[in-house]
Design a protein around this nucleic acid. Sequence first.
RNA 1: GCGGGAGUAGCUCAGCGGUAGAGCAUCAGCCUUCCAAGCUGAGGGUCGCGGGUUCGAAUCUCGUUUCCCGCUCCA
Length: 518
Amino acid sequence: MAQEDLFKKIVSHCKEYGYVFQSSEIYDGLSAVYDYGQYGVELKNNIKKYWWDSMVLLHENIVGLDSAIFMHPTVWKASGHVDAFSDPLVDNKDSKKRYRADVLIEDRMAKFEAKIDKEIIKARKRFGDSFDEAQFRETNQRVLDNQVKLNELNSRFVKALNDSDLEELKQIILDYEIACPVSGTRNWTDVRQFNLMFSTEMGSTAEGASKVYLRPETAQGIFVNYLNVQKTGRMKLPFGIAQIGKAFRNEIVARQFIFRMREFEQMEMQFFVRPGEEMKWFVHWKEFRMNWHKSLGFGADNYRFHDHDKLAHYANAATDVEFKFPFGFKEVEGIHSRTDYDLKQHEEFSGRKIQFFDPELNESYVPYVVETSIGVDRMFLQIISSSYCEEEIEKNDGSKDSRIVLKLPAFLAPVKLAVFPLVRKDGLPDIARKIIDELKFDFYCQYDEKDSIGKRYRRHDAIGTPFCVTVDHQSVEDGTVTIRHRDSMDQERVKIENLKNIIGEKVSMKEILKRLAI
RNA sequence: GCGGGAGUAGCUCAGCGGUAGAGCAUCAGCCUUCCAAGCUGAGGGUCGCGGGUUCGAAUCUCGUUUCCCGCUCCA
């Protein structure tokens, strides 16, 4: 099956079986925003629990946090998001290439400077030692012409940037006949500002309101609470703060289902370390996080690291964990050594000391930070894509049949157990109900008596329920039932009173956490 | 955002100027048989949305919106 078709089928399956719906679908939907349905929310919660337990429960030096989505506007100035996330962009209609308008204009200014330099170099050659550059700049007509043009351009440019005057930026590009380096044409779209941060107003009156942003990452909530947590939790370096929460980015291009959304959820852990020890911890977390992914059992070949050559302004090392999605290897998690950049920025902008007193070294310093940052929705997509199977099976009479089954790891599956009476009479439904009433306190159970038993098995295959228990006539006599296993379709007969232990053990997260803790 | 393609029932699609269809799914009932396709009946769509052409538009046209495929960034 073509990978593209597979992806389409997965998207359809998610909708058909209550995993993921498009937001506001009855109003034609909202671009790149999705809702999780009745089974989606269960799977998502289980993913978050797996992450939280393996980070917070397994590490006594990692604690949790839940910071607000709204933060003081200065946070985003300090973090660099206000500047980095709002570029004036312009497209060349012929080459279809997109440029930053300010970069195009700066390049144009550099050309004026180059012309002036050329004149000066020529003159220096001609006049030799007696060349007086300052005087030459003031008297040479060609230099003066270019200098005037450069000054004009520069003042228009600076003014336009300060006023955020996008029309003027476009006019500058037209006036100075700036052409696309690829197509060579001057067929430009309007200049548009793409602010990747969503903003809203805080405060009830128009005059009193101030602009606040919806956080584009959860990390800053951790950084601004560093002192609170460190002091109240009596934390000593190295220690980490973990957080799960929504983040928002106004993506220009948002596509590929829940892979890239405007509203998404991150699971982040910021690990604070002694300066100089960050590389050791970077390597440590790389390994731990990769083990976490591989322990899901989707195949080691489907994962790889992608080390960054080009580093962000705040990082001195960075790598991505990439997973082989139906549309190729794509990032699911980033592991970054962020240095002391963020905390130092917050020191500067807040005027507060954000440091750690290290009793061993007997000195105070700003800790370095190693970050692990993973997208919940990308994990969700990874798990769904890996679990989705279309199987050919042989029926009892030898004919072929097929089934669609979500082979979810049992500890992540939304519904753990379905209970069916083989037939809807002879007291079998009552026994089935009783089993659910016993087990519903331990895990999510569902009852079904509609249609043939085979059909009911298939329905639960489609949503990934790992175990189906069937109550038959023998159950009335000896108190046993059959457990049918989703992946093998094998059945075993067990006593009703043993169900809780048998299934409870298999759907528990404990074993996988134990393996990670080693 | 730009270019290309597409929106008809929960899903997959047919119909392409003249009263909205099929299969599967759903619901109710019958049957009782451990791996979906037995029988009877029912519900569900102003054909993405809005304008235009026409006596008449799901069908032609324009706009808009959503999705899919390419071009960049990221969790």
